[in-house]
């Protein structure tokens, strides 16, 4: 049986000034398979994440929808929290109601309606999501640096000093790039060769 939890973030006034978060929570509660819905000032904060973890455990949730900012910002944060609560981190969906709603609309009523639709879409997607696992691939511990000017040489030295093999490649007959053409360099006027 699917038990979905919906968490609506205020993001201070970023979201809450344009979206009626309370009514968003109310409408989320009506959605199919939603077992719990709540709102909080900052879901990404430590108390916000604690609320998420505790609610998953307390209400036996097995899918999570967070209505907040873009997943580019805090998807990783929330995946970690979901994982900490014992759920597969890929059973999380994010409804972006900040960048794609609150920040681009003026009419509070319309924005709230759109946010509620975004949440219902995310809930529908969550209902069909399944646990995913990543695989592990071994790596070759050697580096290719393309270009042997100051940037390439410095990178090569730093990585080589850490004990890894580096190939430092340049299309010119010598390494050094533009830097070795220079006389002294600012602001210390030291030699560049």
């Amino acid at each position: 049986m699917k038990r979905i939890g919906v968490f609506v973030c205020h993001c201070g006034t970023n979201i809450a000034s344009k979206v009626d978060v309370r009514s968003l929570v109310e409408s989320a509660r009506e959605l199919q398979d939603v077992a719990y819905a709540a709102d909080y000032q900052f879901m990404c904060s430590e108390p916000g994440q604690k609320l998420l973890v505790n609610s998953i455990r307390e209400h036996d949730l097995n899918r999570v929808v967070i209505a907040s900012c873009t997943p580019r910002l805090h998807e990783e944060t929330f995946r970690k929290a979901v994982k900490a609560a014992g759920l597969n981190p890929y059973l999380l969906e994010i409804a972006n109601i900040r960048e794609q709603c609150a920040w681009v609309h003026d009419d509070r009523e319309e924005a709230t309606r759109k946010a509620s639709e975004l949440v219902s879409m995310a809930v529908a997607k969550a209902r069909n999501s399944s646990a995913l696992d990543s695989t592990r691939i071994p790596i070759t511990k050697s580096l290719l640096v393309i270009g042997a000017g100051i940037a390439g040489i410095q990178t090569a030295l730093d990585v080589a000093d850490n004990g890894y093999d580096v190939m430092l490649l340049d299309r010119e007959p010598t390494i050094g790039g533009n830097m070795v053409k220079l006389d002294k360099t600012f602001p210390t006027l030291d030699c560049s060769a």
Binding site: P138, T140, A148, L157, M167, L168, L169, D170, R171, P173
Partner: peptide, 24 residues
Amino acid sequence: AAQHPNITIASYAEVERVEGFIGN
């Protein structure tokens, strides 16, 4: 860089093709 035991210098060289993915 020239004297570092872990660095091989390939000067007068160009990359022709890159295949594979991170780590490989």
